[in-house]
Design a binder for these strands. Structure first.
Length: 574
RNA sequence: UGCCUCGUGGUGUAAUGGUAGCACCGCAGAUUCUGAUUCUGCUUGUUGGGGUUCGAGUCCCUGCGAGGCAACCA
């Protein structure tokens, strides 16, 4: 991907314009990715990661990773660690000056609590914030509705000294959760609800995963976020559309910081952060909210956050998706302000596009039925040479054992072939991939009428796969030698939901649209080389699909494979 | 119904007053020791109405539709 291939979306043009106008404080474009450590990253976050890190990369700037940990009730270290791991796996590394932890470009919002508190105190001194003891219900009533002005809090005109006293008492732990809060004094009549004296600080007697019990008052997002951006020297702060209506408040806080002389400088220039908003990614046939994903994990609808059916970054990794494919997908869906729903088919296309170039070819029979080559000497075994990847000669070749009895896939045989069925059928010739031409003579059935065994003969002049007389054989099928084939557990994944929009009836009933066939586990026979597959190693099982050795469960000698996606298949049964 | 944002093929996205293009999906054909890959071709689009202009997807007015905002969540 070079620069000219990259879409000139509106965020890029926004930054370009600032750069061209010399409007970037300090001359360095600084962005940030600010997840809250209260869940695992999903494909929607991956888009934001690509935008935030991607723009910084494009302009030769920095992108910070900041854990926005201002609400201790839902956050944890487990989430924080996995967020970092997932971003790295996606191929990005945060950069910038060391944060409190000493790690370059890495910040915890909570490390800025002292400064936030001081800024709040200054707001109080200047009569721009006050302490309020309205209950949440009262506050809701006072705030009013968007179409009518709200009512001022009785505490709105408390003098700064008294406010300061209460604020200090809040911090000292004198009050219970919700008893008091700190609010900005802005405009109770604003058509923008967020300007109606928003809450800046609330009391939470909850230990913080990072700072333990150091604080019992915590800043709200609208107050904390612009301060975090400003303190880090972020120049371009990009977030999703729902924050658009918060932007005036973001700017209000930045303006107050400017008044207080709290904006930082870079290379001698003041850095004044700006926020812009873009549409979040939606994918059909899945859900993307952390709350709902957590619900599926808790209710054990899936095996965990990294269940290969989950749209989480770790789930996709375990499914066999690659970082490159995910980045390519994020590039192709573009960036705009239109709320849209992307088609998972595009993601799959990106996955296939990469895996076709890189995945090692192997043969595996997922639904085995035995074939006996009657004119093959039972004692004889030969090696067949096959390329590891026909699209990449450098990948070399491997030898695959072949003998009198082999497994083929049940779907590759029809006792009464329909028209244009090029595979195995009585009287019909088919090529056994890399080995020889085989002609089926008959099949044996079991008591239930199912095909139990197929018999036929091979054309001894066709060793290697081509007929000596030059006659064409249309069908080629894959196989696994019975004598040396290895058993493997194979997990066949399909989409998690049957409904394009699982939330069409609201978020309560989405589980009724779960796809009952989203996971099917089979025992397959695979060629010997697959026995030693390494965790997360990608393969193409020829004619079947892309598979990956399971990150947790695959062991040498006892491989377990997850189906990443099928191959495209233009065969349409008549 | 207050404020804000957004409407381009089935989907996603370009065109920044000058030939509506690209990709995915779908369909058809060629090639093929993977019915894969590769290659070729095809179907389908500017939310309605009015205005400005030589010229409007783009600017203006108006209707229609979609989404967001009324957590001491982020």
């Amino acid at each position: 991907m070079n620069e000219s291939d990259t879409s000139r979306h509106f965020l890029r043009q926004w930054i370009e314009k600032d750069v061209a106008a010399g409007m970037v404080g300090g001359g360095v474009v600084v962005t940030r990715f600010p997840p809250e450590p209260n869940g695992y990253l999903h494909i929607g976050h991956a888009k934001a990661v690509c935008v935030d890190f991607g723009m910084a990369q494009l302009f030769g700037g920095e992108c910070h990773l900041r854990l926005d940990d201002t609400n201790p009730t839902k956050e944890s270290d487990e989430y924080a660690e996995n967020i970092k791991r997932d971003i790295n796996w996606l191929g990005f590394q945060w950069s910038g000056r060391p944060g409190e932890s000493g790690e370059p470009g890495f910040y915890n919002a909570s490390d800025m609590f002292d400064k936030m508190y001081a800024i709040a105190e200054e707001l109080i001194s200047r009569g721009q914030a006050y302490c309020c003891n309205l209950t949440q219900e009262e506050w809701k009533a006072y705030r009013g509705v968007p179409e009518r002005p709200g009512t001022p809090s009785p505490s709105r005109d408390t003098d700064p000294d008294r406010n300061m006293q209460i604020f200090h008492e809040m911090r000292a732990g004198k009050y219970a959760d919700g008893e008091w809060c700190l609010r900005a004094k802005i405009d109770m009549a604003s058509p923008n609800i967020h300007f109606r004296d928003p809450v800046l600080y609330r009391i939470r007697h909850v230990p913080h995963y990072h700072l333990k019990d150091r604080w019992c008052v915590y800043p709200m997002y609208d107050f904390a976020h612009p301060i975090e951006d400003a303190l880090e020297g972020v120049t371009h702060s990009m977030c999703t559309l729902e924050f658009e209506v918060h932007r005036p408040l973001y700017d209000w806080v930045i303006a107050r910081m400017a008044e207080q002389g709290e904006l930082v400088t870079r290379n001698g220039a003041l850095v004044r952060p700006q926020q812009r908003e873009f549409a979040r990614l939606n994918l059909t046939y899945t859900v993307m909210s952390k709350r709902l994903l957590l619900q599926m994990v808790n209710e054990k609808v899936v095996a965990g956050w990294d269940d290969p059916r989950m749209p989480t970054v770790c789930g996709m990794r375990r499914r066999g998706y690659t970082p490159g494919a995910i980045r390519e997908f994020c590039e192709r869906i573009g960036v705009s302000k239109v709320e849209s729903e992307s088609d998972p088919a595009l993601l799959e296309w990106c996955v296939r596009e990469e895996l076709n170039r890189t995945a090692t070819r192997r043969m595996a029979v997922l639904d085995p039925v035995k074939v006996v080559i009657d004119n093959w000497d039972a004692a004889e075994s030969r090696l067949v040479e096959l390329p590891n990847n026909p699209t990449d000669a450098a990948a070399g070749v491997r030898q695959v054992p072949f003998g009198r009895e082999i497994w083929i896939d049940r779907a590759d045989f029809m006792e009464v072939p329909e028209k244009k069925f090029f595979r195995m059928a009585p009287g019909q010739e088919v090529r056994l991939r890399g080995a020889c031409i085989f002609k089926c003579t008959r099949c044996v059935k079991d008591a239930s009428g199912a095909v139990a065994e197929i018999h036929g003969t091979w054309d001894e002049a066709s060793w290697g796969g081509n007929a000596a007389d030059g006659r064409k054989v249309k069908g080629t099928i894959h196989w696994v030698d019975c004598a040396t084939g290895v058993k493997a557990e194979v997990r066949l994944y399909d989409r998690l939901f049957t409904e394009k929009d699982p939330l069409k009836d609201g978020s309560d009933g989405f589980l009724k649209y779960l796809n009952p066939d989203s996971l099917r586990t089979v025992t397959a026979y695979v060629e010997p080389a697959l026995a030693e597959a390494k965790a997360l190693e990608h393969f193409q099982f020829e004619r079947t699909g892309y598979f990956v050795a399971d990150e947790h469960d695959s062991k040498p000698g006892a491989p377990v494979f997850n189906r990443t996606c099928t191959l495209k298949d233009s065969y349409k049964p008549a």
